[in-house]
Design a protein around this nucleic acid. Structure first.
Lengths: 339, 339
DNA sequence: TTGAAAGCGCTAACAA
DNA sequence: TTGTTAGCGCTTTCAA
């Protein structure tokens, strides 16, 4: 692998000049030398050494993408349609802006942010971060950060959050069920933190508006840390007898619930209406196609990537928090019933 | 960010010594200094600069993962369950071995391999590479390579291929259909290259064994470069009238075909039997659950990652080609018929 | 047991 | 228009 220095010697030029034509800073270089250099570049198949360049410039063109997940979940995190759509559009946006993506998956941010700092990443996309752990991030990493689906971020320096109208989405879902005559509606999720807390709030707001009651047992909680997903749903399915409809916080859960219900010999939506959240491949391909709340993951990735790049290049002038809209996608898993 | 040099000055030591204790080369360092250094390391929150280290060592701990795909397809390549399972297990394996993954998605290998060389990646995983383009790779990149699902690789230096018993898989699928009484069987795919060619061969072998004829029109080709997937399947569905069963080269296609058939008011498998390939999330979650040929993507990623690491560390002693097995997963989309 | 110093390849301020 | 040179932070050989 030939270096700039060697090239300079061969051409009887300085490294500066060679470096300049490599980077197109050719205002002050004569036509003749430009050509000579470029010929040599291709002739000797020059390949830049990015490590050296990074070291000299104190930049890296790397964007770190940190995905936080529980250890039992992250072995196959990228397999989750929700995550893969996000990463897919992030990757493309980062690439198209001339940066490189380095993915980190782990259950705690400390080590990750350390490594990201080690690589001198120009910026970071953070996903799945919980409240208390923000401290560590701020202490160890001073460059731009875009967080996705985080809360209480606005007071932080150098951080922009891409969020979603979670509350509104769940509200729309619940309203849709109510408008179709449903009165006994359950809420299905594995926790009540972060986005799911917001969705829980929206869900309850819709019920309260109609003065429908909601009791603790109407929260169908998946104990995913204790048993396999399949077991969770098998155990939960019988409890759905009590309801005419279930709101699931993801399409993945909606599909799995539908299967568990059907395994009991019942049918969807005749025996139970189901509504999901996300509008990804699963709800679209499943039959009956799942009625769901759409969020634009594509847009989430694109925004996260491009805003981060703008921050890195010191030309971002938008808000500290961007809220993406949601919409109801009516398909075939909500039955109209007469109370 | 404090550097080794600064640390050395503070401690009145040489950079060598500091560097040595950082890397645990402490055979020739006194207990006392080890402790002093380690205290300072934490006190001053030392973070190594990987670019500098890479430059000095002429290594990078980076593994490049190059995914080749047609431009119209790669915007959302990572969204494909097949790819996401692969990348997910690759990422984990790479991480667990102490390396970093850098993903590259593009339609031609030249630029990618250039960038990978620029980063001085210690090794590369190649997916989706076609025959003629291997030249470029060999010319520009001399370090270890693991290819996935490639052919004619055994004669190359530094290359190990992770393949699959594609021929056998399709053979199993076709046999299964035949054993269930099917005689008019179509083959559905978007091309007949690479793995699909192998599958086509296996498929035909099964037919030939039973002296069943196969004509050109029995190859249902998806013209995915010309129209959207949905249109493809809508246009293709009526042609399935002619058959009692269709073998699809992926679960994704199997699901989409099933939906197109059902959109015509027919049912699966009563009116048409379908068999897929991959055994991923789609075939498992769909109802009726798709009968399919299982391949272990998890294993593919793990093998690719760990073999590459072994090659990088010069301790790989296995074959130049690893062939993963397939198996038939019987589910609910193949009907037993009496001829 | 510790240190001095050269060098990895590139950049950029400054000089000519 | 081109060249000189001093780093960037770390590793590693060799010497002390």
């Amino acid at each position: 692998m030939i270096t700039i220095k060697e090239l300079a010697e061969i051409l009887n030029l300085s490294t500066t000049t060679v470096s300049n034509v490599i980077h197109g800073k050719t205002k002050e270089v004569s036509k003749a030398t430009i050509e000579r250099v470029q010929e040599a570049l291709t002739k000797y198949e020059y390949v830049p050494n990015i490590s050296a360049s990074n070291l000299a410039r104190n930049k890296s063109k790397i964007i770190g993408v940190a995905l936080l997940a529980r250890p039992d979940k992250y072995p196959n995190l990228l397999t989750d349609p929700f995550i893969s759509e996000l990463v897919s559009s992030l990757e493309r946006t980062i690439r198209e802006n001339g940066y490189f993506m380095m993915i980190y998956i782990a259950d705690e941010i400390g080590g990750i942010i350390q490594q990201i700092a080690s690589w001198n990443a120009d910026g970071v996309v953070l996903f799945g971060l919980m409240g208390s752990t923000w401290k560590k991030v701020g202490e160890r990493y001073k460059k731009p950060i875009v967080s996705i689906d985080c809360f209480d971020v606005t007071e932080r320096e150098n951080v922009v959050n891409i969020g979603l109208q979670d509350e509104e989405g769940a509200y729309l879902a619940a309203r849709h069920l109510i408008e179709n005559g449903h009165r006994r509606i359950a809420f299905l999720s594995d926790n009540l933190h972060g986005v799911d807390r917001e969705r829980f709030r929206g869900f309850r707001r819709a019920l309260e508006e109609e003065e429908l009651s909601f009791h603790d047992e109407d929260f169908l909680q998946l104990l995913i840390s204790e048993k396999s997903a399949e077991e969770c749903f098998r155990d939960l399915a019988p409890r759905c007898e009590e309801y005419t409809a279930v709101f699931c916080v993801s399409d993945l859960y909606a599909v799995q619930l539908a299967n568990a219900i059907r395994a009991l010999g019942k049918s969807i939506p005749e025996d139970l209406s189901i509504i999901g959240f996300d509008d990804n491949m699963l709800s679209r391909f499943y039959r009956p196609a799942i009625t769901t709340i759409r969020q634009d993951m594509e847009m989430k990735g694109v925004l996260a990537g491009s805003i981060l790049v703008q921050m890195i290049e010191e030309r971002y002038e938008g808000e500290k928090e961007v809220m993406l809209p949601v919409s109801l996608i009516e398909r075939d898993t909500v039955k109209k019933i007469s109370c």
